[in-house]
Simulated assay, not measured.
Amino acid sequence: MSSSNHIEKVAIVGAGGNSGSYMTKALLETGKHTVTAITRAESNSKFPEGVETKQVNYEDVSTIVDALRGQDALVITLSVFAHGQQEKLIQAAADANVPWVLPNEWSPDTDNAGLVKDIGAFQEKPKIREKIQQLGKSSYISVVTGFWYEWSLSIPLAYGIDSLKHEATLFDEGDVRISTSTWPQVGRAVAGLLSLPLQPEGDDKDRCLERFRNGLVYVNSFTVSQKDMLESALRLTGTTIDDWKITKESSSARYDAGLEAMKGGDRMGFVKLMYTRVFFPDGSGNFEQSKGTANELLELPKEDLDEATKAAIEMQKNSLW
């Protein structure tokens, strides 16, 4: 591990995935980090030039420990359906004495009791943070990003907008604002965070990882409503509101319908439940307002909403969901 005041060696689980690939790219671009992709032996993932790879067997935690020895930080990106893997990674990181862990957060605010109570997939996240502290070997930094903007907008069931069919379902009046991030912004946030000095340097006492030890970091691209997203889609498709079929649905009723569908084994019910909950008119989806963001400290750029919407429309065309 590095004896300097900076993180040098970063291991990433999911380095070839949706958000992980952007993290990998951004970390490499800093020129400050050696990046190691932690993969299964049977994985066919491709990585950029310069990425080291170490293969592991999740049924044999010792292989994960060996892969993590000497790493300064572990970044975990996993599917919401990858049950049990994160606990093994957390234990292995402790056994390998990895000092910093960015757990599988990348979500709306899981420090919000209402969201954690109502979205079952979020309930593991506070428990993982607690487990890291209990093990006492690693410190965590949980990066809260909101849902991924372009990915979510490309799924009509998620943000309620179908740019190809020119249809939109507004939850309540469609004016509740939520914090959301693009994949490139998530990548830049991780690279910016792990490029901070461990301890303060110079007069700026805030620009260090120590400030965020065992805490949550909030970053975003936009804090927008469904109406904002719809207006962006209108601009990108060259249409007017009269060209679209617009319906409205109670957010609470939509959440309840998703819950019932999920109980019946319908995964789409889970998507409906999870996404609708952040649009409740309780402010739970707007962490920029309630918690603030670290965008300025991490020197994250202001992004163009229409450019992100354009990416979402292309994703929908290519049926990435």
Rank of each mutant, 00 (worst) to 15 (best):
A257N: 12
A308E: 02
G70A: 13
E42Q: 12
D72I: 07
R235N: 13
S4M: 07
F270I: 13
S2A: 14
D162R: 06
F171Q: 11
L27W: 00
S2Q: 08
R177N: 09
S250C: 11
V278G: 06
A15I: 11
W183G: 00
I12L: 05
K32F: 06
I241L: 15
I76W: 07
D206Y: 07
D282S: 03
L115D: 09
L230M: 13
H83T: 15
P301I: 05
D60L: 08
V116I: 05
T180H: 02
S179I: 01
D72Q: 06
H166E: 15
L193R: 00
D60M: 08
V80F: 12
R188H: 09
Q71N: 10
D306M: 07
G20Q: 05
V80L: 14
A121D: 15
F279W: 13
Q316E: 15
V186D: 04
A26C: 04
N214F: 10
E201F: 01
T36Y: 09
R188L: 15
S142A: 14
L102E: 05
L74A: 08
I141L: 02
V101T: 06
Y255E: 13
A94C: 04
T53F: 04
D111K: 00
G146K: 07
L216P: 00
Q86W: 07
N104S: 14
K302S: 14
D175S: 08
A312S: 07
A257D: 15
Q85R: 08
M229Y: 12
I64D: 13
A113K: 10
A311S: 06
I128M: 13
D66F: 04
M315Q: 13
A121K: 12
S21G: 01
S251C: 14
N214T: 12
G187V: 08
P108K: 02
E130Y: 01
V56N: 09
S179W: 01
T180V: 11
H166V: 11
E105M: 03
S139K: 15
E167D: 13
E201Q: 13
K25R: 09
R277K: 14
E210D: 14
N104K: 04
N57L: 10
V186N: 10
S252M: 14
Q85K: 11
F171V: 08
T237E: 10
S79E: 13
L298N: 02
A67F: 08
